[in-house]
Simulated assay, not measured.
Amino acid sequence: MRRVGLVLSAIALLLSASAASAQSEKPGVEKLYIMNCGEGVAGDIGRWSPGVNEGQSMDFVDTCYLIKHTKGWFLWDTGIPDAVAAMPNGLTPADPKAVTWKRPKTLASQLEQIGVKPADVKAMGISHTHPDHIGNVEMFPQAMLYVQKAEYDWPGANNEPRFKPSHPVELLSGDKDVFGDGSLTILSTPGHTPGHQSLLVKLPKTGAVLLSGDAVHFKSNWENRRVPVNNFNKDQTVASMQKIADTLDKEKAQLWINHDKALRDSQKMSPEFYE
């Protein structure tokens, strides 16, 4: 009998270990790291909030997000080019009302700090193709790039393509469940640019967070539904804000606004992470 009891105990332990292993292998997002991808000063934020704050300066931040999914690493936005870190006066715009950007930490050094090599990043997405969001795309030449077709086809300066033709890309025409398990969903939110997109991330402990891209630039603009003067399409922008609001309600999600310094200053930065 004692032998039978030992056998049954061993079987129970095996089943328990198997269940724990299955639980740990459950598909989904495991961690999210917030990366410092630039810091700057906007000369006149009236361009982002027409009729309000005219002539006022504001500190901006630029944020990238590295996400650990059970199927691999996913990077959202790539920020200001790492090369700007070597520029003592930062990246100065031709228009003094725009943002002067600096790069206090490179993306490469922040990845290295947590033991991630650029080659480890298997997939990536960009909210849109403005320079402060695509500055380091080619640090990851092997990563599948998710971008809306409307954005990919939008001519760049001098009608040049916005990405190297050799970069692997999946062109989207709407929302995309990246890994097929609902934990990471790209949301089509056009308006700021023709193919702007945002990202819904479902974390096991933190819950759902929605990464805005530039669908909105700072909290007061979100609260008042203000549309920047330079946006591609005002009606699309307003509709995308409503889509974000509806998603926040449905998913009980937090809105993380990319450029909002007050928000970012309240968050855990890499090498800390959210689960």
Score class of each variant (00 low, 15 high):
Q110G: 07
H133S: 06
P190L: 03
M269F: 11
L8T: 11
G180P: 14
V84L: 05
K71R: 14
G72S: 04
F179L: 11
D120T: 00
H217G: 03
R226D: 15
L172I: 04
G55W: 08
A98G: 04
M144Y: 07
L199Q: 11
D249F: 04
G191Q: 02
Q148K: 04
T78Y: 02
I67G: 06
V41T: 14
S16P: 15
K26Q: 13
M35R: 13
D177R: 05
L66Y: 04
A119Q: 09
N53I: 07
V7N: 01
S220C: 02
C37G: 15
K71A: 15
K122D: 09
A17P: 04
K176R: 15
N233L: 06
Q148Y: 04
P118V: 11
K31T: 03
S188V: 00
A98S: 08
H167Y: 08
A12D: 13
D132H: 10
V41N: 13
Y152H: 04
D246A: 05
W222F: 02
S166N: 07
K252D: 07
N221V: 08
K97W: 01
S198C: 15
S18K: 08
V209W: 14
L66M: 07
K219G: 02
T70F: 01
Q267A: 09
G5Y: 00
Q242F: 03
E112L: 05
L203R: 08
L75F: 07
P155A: 05
A143M: 11
A42C: 10
S9E: 12
S212Y: 10
L6C: 12
G207W: 06
S18E: 15
D153R: 10
L107Y: 00
A119I: 07
A19H: 10
I134Q: 02
K176I: 04
G180N: 06
V147T: 11
V201D: 07
P155R: 13
